[in-house]
Amino acid sequence: MKAEDRIIHDSLKETKRADERLSPYATRNSECIKVKNTKKERTEFDIRWPYEEDIDRVLYSKSYSRYVDKTQALSFFSNVYITKRSLHVQWVSRIARQIGRGLNLNLDLIEAIALGHDLGHAPYGHVGEKAINDCLVERQFGYFTHNANSVRNLLFIERNGMGYNVSLQVIDGILCHNGEILSPVYRPDCQKTVEQFWNEYEKCWHEKDYSLKILPMTLEGCVVRISDVISYVGKDIEDAIKVGIISSEDLPLEVIRVLGKDNKAIINRLIGDLVIHSYHKPYLEFSKEVFQALEVLFTFISTHIHHHPTLLKENEKLTRMVKELYNVLYDDLKYQHYPQKGICAHVQKMSAVYQQTPIELIVSDYLSGMTDSYALRFYEERFLPRQHGEMIEDY
Rank of each mutant, 00 (worst) to 15 (best):
K2T: 12
E4Q: 13
K13M: 02
T15G: 02
K16E: 13
A18K: 11
L22I: 07
S30Y: 01
C32A: 15
V35F: 02
T38P: 02
I47Q: 03
P50G: 04
P50T: 04
I55L: 06
K70Q: 15
T71F: 08
Q72C: 06
F76E: 09
S86W: 10
S93C: 10
I95A: 01
G102K: 11
N106A: 06
A122N: 09
P123H: 08
Y124M: 03
L136P: 11
V137H: 05
R139K: 14
R159T: 08
G163A: 04
I171V: 15
H177A: 13
E180I: 03
V194C: 07
F197P: 03
W205A: 04
V224M: 04
S227H: 04
K235Y: 04
E238P: 14
D239A: 05
I241C: 12
K242G: 03
S248F: 06
E249F: 02
P252V: 05
G260H: 08
V275K: 11
I276S: 11
V290E: 11
F291R: 00
Q292E: 14
L297W: 00
S302E: 13
H308A: 10
L311H: 02
K323H: 08
G342S: 13
V353P: 04
T357Y: 01
I359P: 09
Y366P: 09
